[in-house]
Amino acid sequence: MTDEPLLRVRSISKFYGNRIGCNDISFDLWPGEVLAVVGESGSGKTTLLNCLSTRLLPTSGTVSYRMRYGAFHDLYRMSEAERRFLMRTDWGFVHQNPSDGLRMTVSAGANVGERLMAVGQRHYGDIRASATDWLGRVEISEDRIDDQPRAFSGGMRQRLQIARNLVTGPRLVFMDEPTGGLDVSVQARLLDLLRGLVHELGLSAIVVTHDLAVARLLSHRMIVMKDGHVVESGLTDRVLDDPQAPYTQLLVSSILQV
């Protein structure tokens, strides 16, 4: 185990004029750790995710990332070229809506292969072999490799998006409601798949979700947000089994029991 975190977040705030997006948020994310950010819509969890993943410039605070060669770099002091390179190699971003993260008019194989081509792979056979392998790992059959995601179901699209993100072996993956908008049975399959991949690849992940069951299944640690503030954080089963903040107690008690 390394004794340095992968991501260091210090006092991140984002204001939209006078309105608070998220306020004064700090934490460390460690290698292999999955952090869930939960809260209802409007709680600032997506704003936080975007601030961490360089998609939205925070008003104040720093986010530093430990590069593969060991040094910490402040994301917002990097050049745009470095940030974008990070985004398509060492990071992944899984959107709630797969069409935001996929190229809907190119084949599944090309969707997966794009990141490989972006880092300079120029052997068609190798690229296709990697794409085939990754489609298999996300349980998409090989004979769909030349189909466009337009012809895929919602669950398949989401799995394809995951494959597209993981093909370069990223160390950190951001996920925004990865199971939102999917049927319950499809959700279960996706969650199991994600859980397996995260474990197998030793990924670190930050998962934004309003679904506490998703947080329970995927994450080691949780942050509960309300009105842009962190109201509670800690080990996932501690937060869910013994919530301390009144708001978390309310959230936990609003889950329907099956």
């Binding site: 800690g234 080990l235 089963d237 501690r238 089994d241 013994d242 301390q244």
Partner: peptide, 9 residues
């Protein structure tokens, strides 16, 4: 037990 295991605060 849960306090020792960490799932209760």
């Amino acid at each position: 037990l849960k306090m020792i295991y960490g799932s209760y605060a």
